[in-house]
Nucleic acid binder design. Structure first.
Lengths: 225, 225
DNA sequence: TATGTTGTTCAGCACGGGTTCAGGGGGAGC
DNA sequence: GCTCCCCCTGAACCCGTGCTGAACAACATA
C-alpha cells in the first residue's frame, strides 16, 4: 500500500509520513507542488494526501492535472480552516475527501482506511518481504515465523527499508529517517547496523549498491531489474 | 466489541471512553457530528453512544444518515433533561435506547450491555492473554484462575496494556491513559508500576522494548506474525 | 489518633545498545 | 596486474535507559 504525502510544512510532512508508515503504508513525500505532481504522475500510489496551499504549483492545479492525465488514485486534501472556497475547488478538481487543519492523526488514518478499503482490501500493520515479516505496531520481526530480536534502531532501519523494498535507499536517507537531527556525516554507524541486521535476518536480504546505498530484496524470487 | 462515542463535551467524552474501555470495549471517540458520522459510516462498530446536541452536524441527522445507509448497529442517544422533542426525534430516526444527562456511568453500561447482548451474544468483560485474565468490570485480575491483588493504578495500566496486547505502548501513551492531567515527564512512576506488576503476574508477561515502551504478551505461545 | 494501604520520589546499580575506531577485504577503473 | 576507494567486521568504549529497594507522602480506615 503506497501513499504519497504532498505538504510544504516540513514538520507536518514528517509527522504525517511517520504516522502513515507506522500504519503500514510505504510513504513517499514531496514538499512542493511540482515535485508532488511529478511523483503522482509517475508512481502508482494507492492513496495521496495533498495539501492545497503549496509552493511552485497550487494543490488544486496538481490535482486537476492528475485527473486530466487519468490518474484515479483516491486523493485526500488538506485545507486551512478558513479556506472554504479552496475546499470546494478541490472537490471540483476531483478530490475524494478532505480534512481541515488542524486535525487528529487518528482521523486522518480512519479516512485513509475508508478511501483505500475498497481499493485493496485492508491495510495491514505487518510488511512482508520474502519470509521476512515486520510487525510495525508491535515492533517485532519474524523470519519464516520465528521471532528475531532486533534493537529499536535496527528496527527503525529495517522498517524503513521494508517500506521501500526493491528501492535503493541512500545512507543519508536512512539517517534522516532514523535520527531526528542530522548527525555526523563521517560516521559508519549505518554500516554497522546493516552488518548486524544481516547477521540476524540473513546476508542476502539486504543488498548493497556500491556508491548509492542499500536495498531490501526477497532473496528467493529475485525480481527482474 | 468496538464502541463509538460521539460527544462534544471533551470531559464527558473522555470519561465515557475510559468507562467503556474498562468495561472491555475498544473505544473510538468523535467530538462533532461530521467526524462521528464518518467514523460510524466507515468502521464496523458494535454499539454507538451518540449525543444529540453536536456541532457541525446534529445528532439526529447523523443517525438518520446512518440508518439510510444501512448501518444497523445499536445506538444509544444522550439528551439533555429538558429536550423532550429531541428524544422523540431520535427514536424516530432509529435509536435503540436513550439516557438523559446527567446519568450514572453504571446505568449507561447496563443499557449498553442490554443493547449488545442480543446483537452479538455476550459482551466479554474479561480480556484474556495467556493464562492471564482481566475482569474489566470487577477490576480483578486472575492468573490461571487464581486471583491476583492489584491496586487501582496497577489495574488501569494492565488493562490498557491488555486492550492493546502485542502492541508496543510508549510510556507517554500509558501516562496519558492513566492520569487525567499530564504530569512530570521525568518521573519513573511507570517503571515502578511495571516492576510491581511483573512481580505479581510474572516477569515474562510484560516485555520492555528499549527506547519504545512496553508490550503485553502471551509468554507461552509466542504468536506468529 | 493510630494503622494500613497506595501512590510517588529518590539514589544507586547493571546492562543493553549506540557509537567509534582500526584494520582488512574486495569491487571498479586504469 | 595495481591502486584507490568504498564497504565490511570485530572489538571496545561509554552513555543512557530501565530496574530495584526503600523511604516518603497522601489518603483512607478503624
Amino acid at each position: 500500500m503506497r501513499a504519497l504525502v504532498v505538504e510544504d510544512d516540513p514538520d507536518l510532512n514528517r509527522q504525517l509520513g511517520r504516522a502513515l508508515e507506522d500504519a503500514g503504508y510505504a510513504v513517499d513525500a514531496a514538499v512542493d507542488g511540482e515535485d508532488g505532481h511529478f511523483m503522482g504522475d509517475t508512481e502508482p500510489y494507492d492513496v495521496v494526501v495533498l495539501d492545497l496551499g503549496l509552493p511552485k504549483m497550487d494543490g488544486v492545479t496538481v490535482l486537476e492535472r492528475w485527473r486530466q492525465a487519468g490518474r484515479d488514485f483516491p486523493v485526500l486534501i488538506l485545507t486551512a480552516r478558513d479556506r472554504w472556497s479552496e475546499k470546494v475547488a478541490g472537490f471540483d478538481a476531483g478530490a475524494d475527501d478532505y480534512l481541515t487543519k488542524p486535525f487528529h492523526t487518528e482521523e486522518l488514518l480512519a479516512r485513509m482506511r475508508a478511501l483505500t478499503r475498497r481499493a485493496a482490501g485492508h491495510t495491514t500493520a505487518t510488511i512482508e518481504c520474502g519470509g521476512l515479516s515486520i510487525d510495525t505496531r508491535g515492533a517485532r520481526v519474524f523470519i519464516d515465523g520465528a521471532p528475531v530480536k532486533v534493537t529499536s534502531h535496527e528496527f527503525r532501519m529495517l522498517s524503513y527499508l521494508a517500506h521501500h523494498q526493491d528501492r535503493v535507499i541512500s545512507r543519508t536517507e536512512l539517517v534522516e529517517h532514523i535520527y531526528d537531527q542530522d548527525f555526523d556525516r563521517d560516521s559508519n554507524t549505518i554500516e554497522v547496523f546493516v552488518g548486524r541486521l544481516r547477521k540476524k535476518i540473513g546476508t542476502d536480504r539486504i543488498e548493497t549498491v556500491r556508491g548509492l546505498g542499500y536495498r531490501l530484496v526477497d532473496p528467493v524470487a529475485r525480481p527482474v531489474s
